[in-house]
Design a protein around this nucleic acid. Structure first.
Length: 467
RNA sequence: GGCGCCGUAGCCAAGUGGUAAGGCAGCGGUCUGCAAAACCGUUAUUCACCAGUUCGAUCCUGGUCGGCGCCUCCA
């Protein structure tokens, strides 16, 4: 049995197989770069990362594209308010986003593409839609006439039968013939950035960039299209209308949607003041790995209730695994191999994989690791863990970290080198051995101040950097 | 109003028609010059409530209560 994924389009768990050979063609909706990424955005991007990592772990070749939306209403509004050119405004936030992704240990996508660099592709797509009679123009803007796309609503499972055709619903400054119609190209307004096109000066609507860029890099039919659940309607529905209206072929075979993140059981909102950015959390002293772990540990189709207590718990949970890894290296394991533990490790790996294969059930995958770690710790305490079992134990941790990527400590800036620490630890052990406890305690305190925790074990002292 | 999700121990959370994974916290213990760290053990007769189906339901059906989301800003 391979990977099963929940397809929003069919509302079913389906076995995932790419349409062609071993390559997965995947598109994920990226950020609109008008501010710093908050914890809610990061949940979706963490989901993207876990998905990509698991597909790779299952030996698929990834052609995944993520967009950067760098022209959009809020961007224009904010940059104009600041009197900064749009490109300058978006560049700073795009840079911040890339930095955040690195800190979150997201694998870079195969292609990271900017909307503003694909205007000709968008124009071409709109022209095709025009040629097919699927559009109309009002006051210089081009709209999609959804009445001509009967399948509209098939992704969000909305039945639009109740909406009166031809009703004029006033939603913004643009006039539409039907409430479902949406703008493909917006006519230029005073002082706004614009491009010259066959339909006049203006800028793209929000949805067209994804259709144009996904098609350009991945073809007419994607294997997977992923994003936050709030994009399902209207954004993804509109992408389908645009892409399928153009190509006549299914736009994506699998649609994956990541559920919302709540903060202390409530929706994030500025008025409540419960929006955290990654930067804020890091300034508060939380490790990016803890954020990553917390966001990854709840299966992506469940609402995730974020809290600072949960973040602390995540950090402690990571420590447990890091301690186990440290123990593998530093304990003196008797020679030989314990066959039962080899089987135990194999079971853990199989359970981990089974959990991930089951629609990325990270909670179940994690349980497989922790059960193994607990039992193996017990075996070490009892002397039943042998040198020959180290390798399989490392394989379990490696499999886990291939997906979760939290075991490595972020490299501390400055501080002591490993060699310096080793020397101090050795000196303390000597002092301790000769009952010079004041000196040994002094060194212990000194190390702690440098963020190094000493642990006395029956096999001698070992140390680790405080996380 | 329409559509949908959810309600499992102090907190986070998995799961199955056959009697409750895992993590954190708490408590107990091992280790230790002291300590820390680490590790181990332990913590739900019960899965919001009521009724039904069933030999048997947390898991199926109906209802009640509660929380949340979407319905053209939104990851």
């Amino acid at each position: 049995m391979g990977i099963r994924l929940y397809n929003s389009l069919t509302l079913q768990l389906e076995e995932f197989v790419p349409s062609e050979n071993n390559t997965v063609r995947m598109y994920t909706c990226g950020p609109t770069v008008y501010s710093y990424a908050h914890i809610g955005n990061l949940r979706t991007f963490t989901f993207n990362d876990i998905l990509r990592r698991w597909l790779r772990a299952r030996n698929f070749v990834l052609h995944d594209v993520m967009n950067i939306t760098d022209v959009e209403d809020k961007i224009i509004r904010n940059s104009m308010a600041k009197g900064v050119p749009m490109g300058e405004y978006t560049t700073q936030y795009e840079k911040a986003f890339i930095e955040d992704c690195a800190r979150m240990r997201f694998l870079p996508p195969w292609r990271l593409v900017r909307a503003t660099e694909h205007i000709p592709e968008m124009v071409a797509m709109i022209e095709t839609l025009q040629a097919k009679g699927l559009t109309y123009e009002t006051e210089g803007s081009v709209y999609y006439r959804i009445g001509k796309f009967p399948e509209y609503g098939k992704l969000s499972h909305n039945d639009f039968g109740g909406i009166r055709a031809g009703a004029r619903v006033d939603v913004d400054e643009y006039d539409k013939d039907d409430a479902r119609d949406f703008v493909l190209w917006k006519s230029r307004k005073e002082n706004e950035p614009y491009w010259d096109t066959p339909f006049g000066k203006g800028r793209p609507g929000w949805h067209i960039e994804c259709s144009a860029m996904a098609t350009k890099y991945l073809g007419n039919t994607l294997d997977i299209h992923a994003g936050g659940i709030d994009l399902m309607f209207p954004h993804h529905e509109n992408e389908i209308a645009q892409s399928e209206g153009c190509s006549g072929q299914p736009f994506a075979r699998f649609w994956l949607h990541c559920e919302h993140l709540l903060v202390d059981s409530s929706k994030m909102s500025k008025s409540v003041g419960n929006i955290y950015t990654l930067r804020e959390l890091l300034e508060m002293g939380y490790a990016p790995e803890a954020v990553r772990y917390l966001l990854a540990s709840v299966p992506y189709r469940k609402k995730l209730n974020f809290s600072l207590d949960g973040l602390k718990a995540a950090a402690t949970a990571i420590d447990r695994l890091r301690n186990f890894a440290l123990r593998l290296d530093t304990d003196k394991h008797p020679e030989g191999v314990n066959a039962a533990l080899e089987e135990r490790a194999a079971k853990s790996l199989a359970d981990f994989d089974a959990g991930m294969d089951d629609d990325l059930n990270t909670a179940e995958a994690l349980a497989a690791v922790y059960e193994y770690v607990r039992e193996t710790n017990s075996a070490m305490d009892a002397g039943g863990f042998h040198a020959g079992n180290v390798e399989s134990a490392r394989r379990v941790l490696a499999r886990f970290d291939e997906v979760f990527e939290v075991l490595k400590t972020a490299v501390a800036e400055g501080g002591m080198s490993d060699a310096e620490i080793d020397a101090l630890v050795a000196e303390r052990s000597q002092a301790k051995k000769s009952k010079n406890f004041s000196r040994s305690d002094e060194i212990r305190a000194q190390l702690l101040e440098m963020g190094v925790v000493l642990e006395d074990t029956k096999d001698g002292a070992r140390w680790k950097r405080k996380s």
